[in-house]
Amino acid sequence: MKRHNIQLNEAGELHHFLDVEGLKRELLVNILDAAESFTSVKAQQVKKVPLLRGKAIVNLFFEPSTRTRNTFELAAKRLSADTLNVNISTSATSKGETLLDMLNNLEAMHCDMFVVRHAQSGAAHFIAQHVAPHISVINAGDGSHAHPTQAMLDMFTIRRHKGAFADLKVAIVGDILHSRVARSQIHALTTLGVTEVRVIGPKTLIPDDTASLGVHIYHDIWEGLRDVDVVIMLRLQKERMSGALLPSEHEYFKLYGLSPEKLAIAKPDAIVMHPGPINRGVEISSEVADGPQSVILEQVSNGIAVRMAVMSILMGQTFGKEKGASE
């Protein structure tokens, strides 16, 4: 028997968004299509739609984040939801309150959705398993496991520039080992039908099981970038490095940093992406990051539309509503 996917309700609709892995292509395309329609909201004088009026969305960030937290908050506000940012370092957890007690308290405040960022892999799953059934949970990054909304905004950006996914060659470059973004991107790309996903990086930063994800592994960037349509650079996660995985940042840039010379190996119309924050001169040169092929800031704007789409799909799931939503 197939294991029940905790992300789906009994009607097969998304109830939580924790991981791209295991979701059908149709669900991912739904998110991308809905995001497309939310892009028009920014053209409005009042940049808001009344979809989630009266809903309360809690940002639970146990790990620092600027872009993700801000775009989640903005997305929620553009949907007219009320947002609450729980600052963990000043909250009662630092007085010894357990996580579950904190969740119970937030539920007692009639919150409808939790957006969770945590340094431990599986944290969002854990919370999704313990919340009341009407609450939806979005994983905003858990350890080195998954970051599904980042992957979807990247897919959205790729689709806007390249149209169809099928014939694309996509390279993901850098610190795959510590990257929840890379893991989610690989699942999203293969689910959406990209035939050639390449992973490029030093042996020490590519986990042993990577090949089982159906990707091609390159240790030489000059070889790996040949003829690709999309180059996704990953941040060198210095805060997660333990042990001598790298010689030096300077050496890393020389071997794997994206310079104009290396980018010239890719297709002339290749786009350059990066989930941010960027380390200039470590994984990417300023020339490339600020250059004409870079879509890094577009990714940030797209993040708002994609997060609006995910939030409204989760809050709009129809299962059980016929029986009366107010129970």
């Binding site: 299509d33 409204s312 709009g316 509503k321």
Partner: peptide, 22 residues
């Protein structure tokens, strides 16, 4: 596309074929 302004979102959810307004 008035999908985001409908009064029945809490009953029927997001319309699956919503288009951007232009």
């Amino acid at each position: 596309d008035i999908s985001f302004y409908r009064d029945d979102f809490t009953r029927i959810g997001l319309h699956p074929e919503v288009k951007p307004s232009n």
